[in-house]
Structure formats: structure tokens, C-alpha cells
Write a protein that binds this DNA or RNA. Structure first.
Lengths: 203, 203
DNA sequence: TGAGCGATGTGATTCAATTCACAATGTGTA
DNA sequence: TACACATTGTGAATTGAATCACATCGCTCA
């Protein structure tokens, strides 16, 4: 079901597009085509999420968008901290700045004195030591790790101690966390090596 | 087997660390622990790659590093183009700059006139129209897409026409490419939404 | 030398994700 | 109304990854 959740966010983006084009209904095979997957996959996903369409009209676009929202959006604002204000950290701050009111990066942390107390893309940068105060105060439940591999585990441990429940990790390191904390690692180096490999070998 | 290839790159990083600490051999359960997975998984992966250890000594670290290298590294330099020199594009250029001689980003493309002909983190930025000349001239086989979602499919089509065989896509869009072209999409928004979801709901 | 121990290598199994295939259903048409 | 059609919803089959479990091997030590 984890994969299904991941696709919901994609479906919603595609549906917003479709809605903008003025269509009120969409067939599973249409949504599948733009999502680049099979129609059965789409129907299975929507079934898993408890959404029904009607035979011969398909799925009601606006309803489905709403349904996805209630299923995957936080009911009220969910707050995120970003640790490591390097190039990648700044890119992520820039990307999310003001984009999702419901899912906002509200604090950044970095020990580089050139960055501390600066406001980067709408987000103030604090020293690492301030984490233990700011994370609980702002009720932050998700962390984004964009520090070098060597410090990633240490940062993860500290975030876990501060009761963070989800981590999006960009460091090329396998984080170990206790059960109950969800981690997704996006390892860009590994991804590029994999793409390069299959570009050479095929499949 | 795609997953196995993806883990090889991780194993190598961990093994380099282990080697640095002076160990000449490593057990599957040790490697598994630092990789955050099961020991059987590690053995299965190494078996898939045709590497053998010895019972009671484990795997020879230096040999294994070498074996992984010949398995997943390009025999000679493989060249990569990056399209879209925004915040994320720059972060990726900075990260890979000079890091992998065998897998080098050798050209960047962007139509923003403030960027064209500038050298960004060791990589010259060309206008998009120059792609059709530069990509074949430099024998580039892999593309990284860091443009907004709207233009991602267009860029992918152009790269495919220029005979690129692998694409690492950061745009939140499902790219459609002909068979024989490998695509990996790293959708940061979707990933963050997924992490936020499981941070709230658990598992 | 040979018995015991702790690894590896791997067939068999489990588990999850995807795809198939078709009965059930709503819509349009005559 | 009744029929034909295209689509949904979903059990069943398939695929693929991860895990289990154990026969086998190589050291070590008595």
C-alpha cells in the first residue's frame, strides 16, 4: 500500500490538469496513460483508497481530487524541518517555499555561521543546537536531511529523540531508526549510477 | 534485479568505509547491519552479482569493491547532460563536480540568458537549441532533467531523439519514452507527501 | 585427525505488487 | 423496453523481491 499512497499524489497533479482542461469525468485508461502505467493499476489504487467510479462515465474528477485530499493531506498544517542548508537544502527550500500551506518547511538548521540567522527562501536558519528547542515548540513531525553522509545518522538520531515521525533523507547513507519512524531515502548518486548502468546495458 | 543494482552502489560506499577501518574481510551480517537490511538479502545480492565469499572468513573487502566496480562502473567515461539549471540543477552540478571521473556531467542546458555561457560548478551552460549539436558531439548517453513539470516531456522527447538511453528525472511528471530508454523519476514532492502521510498514520 | 562452530550459497517459501480476465453495471439507442 | 457496448470492480493468476531454512564448507582447537 505504500506504493499506492505514493501514486495518489501523482494522480492528483494529473487530475488537476485534466480538470483545468474542462473534463468532468475521466476513465481509468486515460488517467493511466498520462501516469504512464496500466489501467488496472489505476482502478486497483482507487479501489484501495475506497473510491468508486461509474461504469461508462468513469471517475468524477472533482470528487476524486477531493477524496485524494482527505485521504493523504494532513487535516491541519503539518510542519517540517530541514537540516543541512547546502546547495541541495537550499534548492528544496526554494521549491517548497509557499507551495503547500498544509505541509510547510518552517525551520532550517545548519551550523555554518555564514548561514545561521539568515533567512533562506523564506525560512530562517538556526544553529543545530537550537533543534531541541524549536522542533517541539513548532510541533514539527517531519525532518528532511540534506547533510553529508557522515553526519546523517547523528542528525537522524537527534530528530528521532525529538519525536519526529518521518524522515526524508537525501544523504547517501542507510539510516537506522526505531520502529514507528518512517524513512524514505532518496540517494541521488545511487539513482544516477543505476540510470547509467541501464543506459549501457539495456532494460 | 534492478533493486540489486541499486544496492550495489550503496554496498560499495559502505565497503570503502570498512576498508578504511582496516578490515580485510566482512560478514554478510555486518554489511547488512550498516546497510540497514537483512543478511540473507546481502548474500542473495552478492550471489546475483556472481561474487563468492568463504565460510567463516566472509567476503574479501578489496576484491568485492573491485568486483562491484567492474560490474556497475562504465568501462570508460560515460557522459551525462543536465537540462534545467535552476536551484536543483545547480545543486546536482555542485554535488557531482569532479566526484566521479567515470560518470561526469559534461554539459548543462538552460534557455535563461542569465545562465547561458556561464560556467556553473565546472560545467558550461548552453542554450537548449545547442543540445542537438553537443549531445552527439560529446557522446552523451544519460540525461538529468531538472526543468519544471510542463517542459519535462518535451525535453525528454528531445533527449530521446538525440539517442540518449537513460534519464534521471526530477520533474514531477510521468515521462513517456520508447522501450530501450530507462527512466528513473525522483519526485521530491511525492516523496515528502508520502513521508508526511506515514509520519501521521504510522507504518 | 576429527568434532564443533559459525559462516556461506541456495532451493523453497512467503509476501507484496502488478496484471489478467471477466462478471456486473450504467448509458445510449432503437 | 430490451439490446449492445464500454467501463468499472475485483477475485485469481502472475511476477518479482525479500526472507527462511538448511545442507555444506572451512577454520579452530583438543
Amino acid at each position: 500500500m505504500e506504493k499506492t499512497i505514493g501514486r495518489m499524489s501523482l494522480y492528483r497533479r494529473l487530475l488537476l490538469d485534466i480538470e483545468k482542461r474542462g473534463a468532468s469525468h475521466v476513465y481509468s485508461h486515460e488517467l493511466a496513460r498520462v501516469a504512464g502505467i496500466g489501467a488496472a493499476q489505476v482502478r486497483r489504487d482507487l479501489m484501495t483508497m475506497g473510491f468508486s467510479g461509474s461504469p461508462s462515465k468513469g471517475y468524477h474528477v472533482a470528487d476524486l481530487i477531493g477524496h485524494i485530499g482527505t485521504a493523504i493531506d494532513p487535516p491541519e498544517q503539518q510542519r517540517v524541518a530541514l537540516v543541512g542548508v547546502g546547495n541541495l537544502g537550499r534548492a528544496i527550500l526554494a521549491y517548497f517555499h509557499g507551495r503547500r500551506p498544509k505541509l510547510a518547511i518552517v525551520a532550517a538548521f545548519d551550523d555554518d555561521s555564514a548561514k545561521v540567522d539568515k533567512v533562506v527562501h523564506g525560512c530562517r536558519c538556526h544553529p543545530l543546537r537550537a533543534m531541541s528547542e524549536i522542533v517541539p515548540a513548532l510541533d514539527i513531525t517531519v525532518g528532511i536531511i540534506t547533510v553529508p553522509a557522515e553526519s546523517a545518522q547523528d542528525i537522524a538520531d537527534r530528530l528521532v529523540n525529538l519525536d519526529i515521525k518521518g524522515i526524508l533523507n537525501f544523504a547517501p547513507a542507510a539510516l537506522r531508526v526505531p520502529p514507528g519512524v518512517f524513512v524514505d531515502t532518496m540517494d541521488i548518486t545511487t539513482a544516477l549510477e543505476k540510470v547509467a548502468y541501464f543506459a549501457r546495458k539495456g532494460r
